[in-house]
């Protein structure tokens, strides 16, 4: 029991992983074996990177002790910027570069305002949610520009690749980014600072860590990942709607929390965020296949989020009651 407790404290994503396996099992049965079929997996894994990338960034930021509610809007703004520039005759790569620059700037502003004025990032990024969405609509000029798909290296982002074309190229991007961020967090001094900053800010400051810069860096990474994810979705759809990504910010927070991230910072893992995002996509997809009224989807995600927080809070309380002997 004690070991189980300790394990779940150190690996907060384990519970979510267990749940994921169980749910896959259930949906496999209720969909009469269709859930794990090639066609369904191909569709599911094709969508997954878009939300999971956002969840990776949000998880990192939450571990650093901050929130970002603007990711859904940045998700729309980046590809809209790119599309508008391409319609104006820009090449694909320069347009992408400018789009990502916009994301980085938004992340910087989020972090700078939050730290400079000591306001909760919940508020700063809530403001940015509206501002970025508004900018998206304004630059779209009212109707979405169509992308000239021949100017886009499709095979680099959305084409199906891999064994029997199961995966999209976007999945590989997602895996690379997720592994890279997880490595950054777990194996580098920067990751140590992120955890210390989110885990206990006064100690991090007293040990001389540049906590402001660490936080701003996390805000920027989070925005960049959200923008990149939005770009992938738009490349898949062929046209940037100004409304994409609405509500995504909350799903990403839910994914991070379901994956074991604490709302108070310090605790959580990138793998957890990925599992949380997968869980949400699996529930969405599995409920449709099982012919459950799809309006229950949000209910399920909400219930799961609350359950995860309650379970983690309980675990941590139990964990705190344990002391190591000298």
């Amino acid at each position: 029991m004690k070991r189980l407790l300790k394990l779940s404290l150190q690996k907060p994503e384990l519970a979510a992983l267990l749940l994921l396996v169980i749910l896959i099992g259930i949906f496999q049965v209720t969909s009469n074996g269709y859930f794990l079929s090639y066609t369904n997996m191909r569709g599911l894994l094709g969508f997954l990177p878009e939300m999971a990338l956002v969840a990776v960034g949000v998880t990192l930021l939450m571990i650093c002790g901050e929130f970002d509610l603007s990711v859904g809007s940045v998700f729309a703004l980046m590809p809209m910027t790119m599309a508008v520039l391409m319609v104006a005759g820009w090449g694909f790569l320069p347009a992408v570069a400018v789009g990502l620059l916009v994301c980085a700037a938004i992340g910087f502003i989020n972090g700078f305002l939050t730290i400079k004025f000591g306001i909760p990032s919940f508020i700063t990024t809530l403001g940015m949610l509206f501002m970025a969405r508004s900018m998206t609509v304004v630059i779209s000029g009212g109707f979405p520009p169509r992308l000239q798909m021949d100017n886009i290296p499709e095979q680099l982002f959305i084409a199906f690749v891999g064994p029997s074309d199961l995966l999209r190229a976007s999945f590989l991007w997602f895996v690379c980014f997720a592994v890279f961020i997880a490595f950054l967090l777990g194996k580098t001094n920067f990751g140590n600072w992120v955890r210390a900053t989110g885990g206990f800010l006064p100690a991090a400051q007293a040990m001389g860590i540049p906590t402001a810069r660490v936080k701003i860096a996390c805000f920027m990474i989070c925005s960049l990942l959200a923008g990149f994810a939005g770009m992938i979705q738009v490349l898949r759809l062929g046209s940037p709607l100004p409304s994409i990504g609405e509500g995504l910010e909350l799903q990403a927070v839910a994914a991070a929390v379901i994956g074991g991230a604490s709302l108070f910072g310090g605790i959580g893992s990138i793998l957890g965020g990925v599992i949380g995002a997968t869980l949400i996509r699996v529930i969405d997809n599995g409920m449709v296949l099982s012919q459950v009224d799809s309006n229950w989807f949000k209910f399920a995600v909400g219930a799961l989020t609350i359950l995860a927080v309650v379970a983690n809070a309980w675990l941590r309380k139990r964990g705190r009651a344990m002391k190591v002997e000298t």
């Binding site: 140590n192 600072w193 955890r195 210390a196 885990g199 206990f200 100690a203 991090a204 040990m207 001389g208 860590i209 310090g266 605790i267």
Partner: peptide, 13 residues
């Protein structure tokens, strides 16, 4: 930082 290990804490920064 309570949520980090002893080894990690020893070398923060």
């Amino acid at each position: 930082v309570p949520i980090m290990s002893i080894a990690r804490n020893m070398f923060i920064g």
